[in-house]
């Protein structure tokens, strides 16, 4: 089987998607807001130059100004940018098929522990990715957490987040 990108990547234009300019502007605006937070925090703590050299806000404040200016230039450039597509709706859908399970996985780590949530993540991901072999899915979902448990908890004694199942089993 050859791995080739799906034909038709070059006809993305009529398909539509998230505007590149909009994303540029949003990112630049967010970065500028971040810069303002940095500046506020630094001047609040003192950003001057005392007898014993710079205060602890000195360097962050100077870099904060540079950051603000840089982000401002990016913002201005973005306004003048020709329209384009940042990511097509179809591509965004693909990304979400990975990102959504990933967010759920991370959210489950605290209540369920990393091993159980890993098993669920593998099942979910493989189903979404279109694996039809149920035995393979279950095998992977069982083996990966078990091997991880063996390596991290038993061999290297690196404690990872555990949930009720592990507590029930006495770990």
């Amino acid at each position: 089987m050859t791995i080739q990108n799906e034909a038709g990547a070059d006809v993305a234009a009529p398909e539509g998607g998230l505007s590149r300019r909009a994303v540029e502007l949003t990112v630049a605006a967010l970065l500028m807001a971040l810069a303002l937070m940095v500046l506020w925090d630094s001047y609040d703590r003192g950003a001057g130059w005392t007898g014993a050299g710079p205060e602890n806000g000195f360097f962050p404040a100077r870099i904060g100004w540079i950051f603000l200016a840089g982000a401002g230039v990016v913002l201005v450039n973005a306004v003048r940018q020709p329209p384009g597509v940042f990511v097509s709706w179809q591509q965004l859908g693909q990304v979400m098929r990975v990102l959504v399970p990933l967010v759920i996985f991370v959210a489950l780590i605290k209540p369920l522990g990393i091993y159980v949530s890993s098993a669920l993540f593998i099942i979910g991901f493989m189903l979404i990715a279109g694996s039809r072999n149920k035995v393979a899915i279950l095998l992977a979902a069982a083996l990966v957490p078990l091997v991880a448990f063996w390596i991290f908890e038993l061999q290297f004694r690196v404690p990872l987040p555990k949930g009720p199942l592990e507590a029930f089993l006495g770990y």
Binding site: F121, M126, S131
Partner: peptide
């Protein structure tokens, strides 16, 4: 190895790496 299997494993390893 099929992507459907490797990708979640990589992401799990990333999460473990970040946690430890």
């Amino acid at each position: 190895v099929p992507f459907a299997l490797v990708a979640p494993i990589i992401l799990i390893i990333c999460a473990i790496g970040a946690y430890t």
